[in-house]
Structure formats: C-alpha cells, structure tokens
C-alpha cells in the first residue's frame, strides 16, 4: 500500500528525517512513537506534501505508484488523508460545501445532492454529531472533541484508504477519545484501510490495536516491535532503547 524508501525530509536548511524506510501493507495499522520534537508529525505532513517540508532524497510509493512528485490534492484523491492534532477552522466554508466539492473531484462526477445529504445525515447520527454541523463553517466555534468528530465525518464521507493520524487523541477527554478511536477502528475493520498513527496514548493504542510499533529517534526509525513495545516504552521511556528490530 505505502512504501517509503530512503527519504530525507528538510525544512529550510534543517534536516529533520534522514534515510527513512517504512512499508505499510493494506489493512495494517502502524504506530509511530518517539520523544517530542523528533519529527513524527513531520513525516505525516511530508507524506501529504505540506509545503513547509521538502523531500530532498528518496521516494514514496502508494498503491504501487511513485507519488513523490504528485501534489497534495492528487495524493488525497488517491486515498490518503490526515487528521492533525488540532484541525484548523476555515471561515465561510461549510463542511457540506467542502465535502461535495472534494467528492466531485475524487469521483470525477457530479454529486447527487439527495444521496449526499442522506449519507451525510446517517454518518452524523452514527457519530452523535448534530446534523447542523454539516452546514457550519469547517471546525468554526467547535470544541476539541467536536473538531475530531467533524474530521471523522470527513473520513466516512471521503473514504480514504490510508489514514495518517497525527496525535488524534490530543485535546480529547476519556469519553471523547473512546468515541473517536472506536469510530476509526470501525472504519478500519469495515474498509480494510491502512493506518499510520502518531501517538503516546496507550488508551488509543489499546483500541486501535496496531500491528507494528516504530520508535523514531535521531531522524530515523531505531526500533520496530509489536504492541508489547508500547507497554515497554510506557514503563521504561525511550532512553533504554537500542537500535534493533524486534519484529519484521
């Protein structure tokens, strides 16, 4: 599904990630952990070609296609989607308006308004999100929990095949975290999408049940393991780790 081959990511003159390799197969869930400021979010954003970052070396393959030179929207229309830790608000642009345009772009066809509204309404009900949010400006005036639910609405409507979750648990209380994580897991189990999740939160990992845990340190992945690695990090921290793979 996703192959990251020896990529180096920079911002300005600063090298953030060096010679990173990572492969995520269809349906797999990978968690990326590591000390603060090590570049975990950078990887998610660079995978979607955030203009703040540049991939100066290496290549990215998605669905067997080299996407290294593709634009952000081209990557999104291939099925990649990111939820950031603090989704931004956009004044004057409603969720419904953005979703209809995005669906038309993705499917290359006119979107039937009645089918769209029916599906959007059903998803709002499933997420316990008031239907009125569809016609509100994107994330405007919404709490942290509501913003994440709005992003879930985007996921269920746009149906991505790869989710990049950048500290999606940030700003969520225990109940909201459970709702958000369970919805993502349900979407995964239903669609067999792949997931790369950046988190330190054991509760989120307990619900998502990742197949692999990667530890990012010193600009690269220094260790890969199964879910037990997250428990070890929880007890011992990142300092104790040496640079060996335990799984895969």
């Amino acid at each position: 599904m996703l192959q990251i081959r020896e990529i180096t990511i920079t911002t300005g003159e600063k090298e953030l990630i060096k010679d990173l390799n990572l492969e995520i197969k269809e349906g797999e869930i990978h968690a990326l952990m590591g000390p603060n400021g090590v570049g975990k979010s950078t990887i998610c954003r660079a995978l979607l070609k955030d203009p703040s970052y540049e991939i100066t070396k290496g290549s990215i393959f998605y669905k067997k296609q080299d996407i290294t030179t593709l634009t952000t929207s081209e990557r999104a229309n291939l099925g990649m989607m990111m939820i950031s830790q603090n989704p931004i608000a956009i004044e004057g642009v409603t969720n419904a308006e953005m979703l209809r345009l995005a669906l038309a772009e993705k499917n290359k066809e006119h979107i039937d308004i009645f089918s769209f509204q029916k599906e959007a309404k059903e998803i709002c009900e499933k997420l316990a999100l008031p239907e009125s949010f569809l016609h509100r400006d994107i994330n405007s005036g919404a709490s942290g929990g509501e913003r994440k639910k709005i992003e879930l609405l985007h996921i269920w409507m746009l149906k991505p095949s790869l989710l990049l979750l950048d500290e999606v648990d940030s700003g969520l209380d225990v109940d909201a975290l459970k709702i958000v994580a369970s919805s993502i897991k349900e979407y995964h189990d239903l669609t067999n999408c792949s997931i790369l999740v950046v988190t330190h939160n054991p509760k989120l990992l307990a619900i998502l049940k990742p197949d692999y845990i990667h530890i990012l340190k010193n600009k690269k992945i220094i260790k890969t393991g199964d879910a037990s690695l997250a428990s070890r990090i929880e007890k011992e921290g990142f300092i104790s780790l040496d640079e060996t793979n335990e799984v895969g």
């Binding site: 979607l48 955030d50 203009p51 703040s52 634009t71 952000t72 929207s73 999104a76 229309n77 989607m81 990111m82 989704p87 931004i88 956009i90 642009v93 953005m98 979703l99 345009l101 995005a102 772009e105 993705k106 994107i138 985007h154 746009l158």
Partner: peptide
C-alpha cells in the same frame, strides 16, 4: 497556506 493545505488534503485542487 495552512487553510490552503488543509483543503488540498481533502482532495480539492489549488
């Protein structure tokens, strides 16, 4: 640019 990037990550062209 953050607004623009956000909408592009949903699949909208520039």
């Amino acid at each position: 640019i953050d607004d623009l990037f956000y909408l592009k990550t949903k699949g909208l062209t520039e």
